[in-house]
Every structure is written in structure tokens, then in C-alpha cells.
Design a binder for these strands. Structure first.
Length: 285
DNA sequence: CGCATTTCCTGGTAGC
DNA sequence: TGCTACCAGGAAATGC
């Protein structure tokens, strides 16, 4: 989305701001954008960051169902347009933020001041940047006792991994989502590090994953959904071993994994009260 | 502080 | 068909 927005928005002035949602922590100080020019369109994790010429910064997070588009959503979808920004320059010159569930954010802050955005302030390294090394990832994981999947979702070890890509990366790396982060063996850390980068790069190349809501700026669907190996496939056969994928909750999030390929590593704490020794024993979650 | 739990919100769907 | 109940989840707020 950053890639699609940059050529459209860079250098345009905000000439009008229309807020159709109740003001609140998710929709704050938007009127301050009025009269400022978008200097660039950047991104940290899942946050879009648009520095403005007056020293402010427009912060956009899509949440679950947010969509930024250059045209008015068709039909009933237009009821859930929360923000319209009128822009200087040629058509299309209106940015629409469509957000049915209001899980998204669209707000203006002083540039770089993220006191009210703690996840952004403490965001881990960009997954595709050189700074995200296996060693840095290993150090971060070693500091947490959380289930590795829950820790990934916290955005601290690496930025931008949400529920879909966490399940996909863990499946690819053959890591059980409940493995305590600090107990991942070095080889698994390296595999997971590589899998995160691969799955995100592949999804970006496919313009993202459209389940039902996500659209690119031009209203197109992303095609990565057809490549998913784990997410949304509970009850279907694992594409590696053929065993049925299982669904459970990890950190209160729906989680799909292969109980055969993704095992709790030896030395990791088994689930409370459970013992496991037989490779053909009960499913290990 | 660190981690777990709850909250926000509405379209879609399962069940009756 | 129409109703109710519940589920989906990113990040913040709250609880411990």
C-alpha cells in the first residue's frame, strides 16, 4: 500500500479534511493536516507514516478492515467511509479511508512523537531490512518467555507480522506456535527468521492477502491468499505431510498449525501436566 | 516492568 | 425467512 500511495500523494497539499467517525484516540487531530503538504509516504511495520510539511505526521493503521482508496467505495460500503482528505492536484484528488469495524487509526501527531502509539514507539526492526539479522532476532527471542507466536504478534522482535503471516512463517519453519520464545534452538531461530522474510516478501510481491476486505489503493484484491499453507486451512491436509492441520488458541488468537511438522522442541516446557514421548501420541498442543 | 486479559466494532455465518 | 448468538482480530487499556 505504501508503494501504491507514494506516487499519488507525495507533494500534494491537504486542502480539506472530512471526518465522518467520532473523534477519539483512533481519529485524532486530523484537522491539523489541513494546509500541509505530504512530503513522503513511508511505513514502519503495519503503520503508514506520512510526514507533513508543517512538522506533523499523518499516521494510518488499517486495523483489520481498513482500506485507503482513490475512489469512493461502491454502494453500501460508502457508509463506512470514516475520513476523506481533499488533495491539491489532478484527479484523483480525494483520499477515502474506509473502515467498517473502526479498528483502524487515522490521526495526526507531531513528527516522531508516538507517546500515544506504544506499539509503534517500541516496534522491532523492519523484517526486510539488513538490521533484521538472525543474531538480532535470536537475542530478542532469548529475552521472552512468551509463546513464540504471541511474541511475534507483539511486534517487538520484528515489525509487521500479524496473525496470517505468523502462522505461515511458523509452518514454513516447522516451529510449534506455543514454543516459549527463549527455548527455540538456534537452528529453528534461523529457520523462522528466513521464513518470516520469505513469506512477507512473497506476499508483498502478490499485493497482499485478500480474505474479504483488503484491497489495494486501486481496488484490486491481493492474491497471496491462494498461497496460504496454514492460515484458514484448519481441518485440511498439511501440504508437507498430509496430516490434518489443527486449530487452537495461542495468546487469544486463532492459530492453525500442523501437529506433525510443528512439534514442541525437546527441552521446551510441555503443556502443563502433559508428558510426551511417543511420536505417534496424541496431538501436541 | 512484563505478561495476560479485556475491550473496541460490525459483517458474516451457524443454528434454530 | 428471520431471528439470535457468536466469531474474526491489531493494538490499546486494564488487571495482576
Amino acid at each position: 500500500m505504501r508503494r501504491e500511495l507514494a506516487p499519488w500523494l507525495t507533494g500534494r497539499a491537504v486542502t480539506g479534511v472530512e471526518l465522518l467517525a467520532p473523534r477519539g484516540p483512533k481519529y485524532r487531530d486530523l484537522e491539523r493536516a489541513q494546509g500541509q503538504t505530504v512530503e513522503s509516504v513511508s511505513r514502519r511495520g503495519k503503520f503508514l507514516l506520512l510526514p507533513l510539511s508543517g512538522g506533523d505526521e499523518l499516521v494510518i493503521h488499517l486495523g483489520m478492515t481498513g482500506v485507503v482508496s482513490s475512489s469512493e467505495p461502491a454502494g453500501k460500503a460508502s457508509e463506512h467511509v470514516r475520513v476523506r482528505l481533499r488533495l491539491s492536484g489532478a484527479d484523483p484528488n480525494t483520499l477515502h479511508f474506509h473502515d467498517p469495524r473502526r479498528f483502524g487509526r487515522f490521526l495526526v501527531v507531531r513528527a516522531g512523537e508516538y507517546a500515544n502509539l506504544p506499539t509503534l514507539a517500541a516496534l522491532g526492526p523492519e523484517p526486510l531490512a539488513d538490521a533484521f539479522t538472525t543474531e538480532a532476532f535470536a537475542r530478542s527471542l532469548a529475552a521472552s518467555s512468551m509463546a513464540v507466536k504471541a511474541y511475534l504478534l507483539s511486534q517487538r522482535p520484528v515489525a509487521g507480522v500479524g496473525n496470517i503471516y505468523a502462522d505461515e512463517a511458523l509452518w514454513r519453519a516447522r516451529v510449534h506456535p506455543r514454543t516459549p520464545a527463549a527455548r527455540l534452538p538456534a537452528a529453528k531461530v534461523a529457520a523462522l527468521h528466513g521464513a518470516i522474510r520469505e513469506v512477507l516478501a512473497a506476499s508483498i510481491a502478490a499485493h497482499g492477502t485478500t480474505l474479504s476486505d483488503y484491497r489495494t489503493v486501486n481496488g484490486q484484491s491481493g492474491s497471496f491468499g491462494t498461497f496460504l499453507d496454514a492460515y484458514g486451512r484448519a481441518g485440511q491436509p498439511c501440504r508437507r505431510c498430509g496430516r490434518e492441520l489443527r486449530r487452537s488458541l495461542v495468546g487469544q488468537r486463532g492459530t492453525v498449525f500442523c501437529p506433525n511438522c510443528q512439534r514442541l522442541v525437546a527441552g521446551a516446557h510441555p503443556a502443563r501436566g502433559a508428558t510426551r514421548s511417543s511420536p505417534r501420541g496424541p496431538a501436541d498442543d
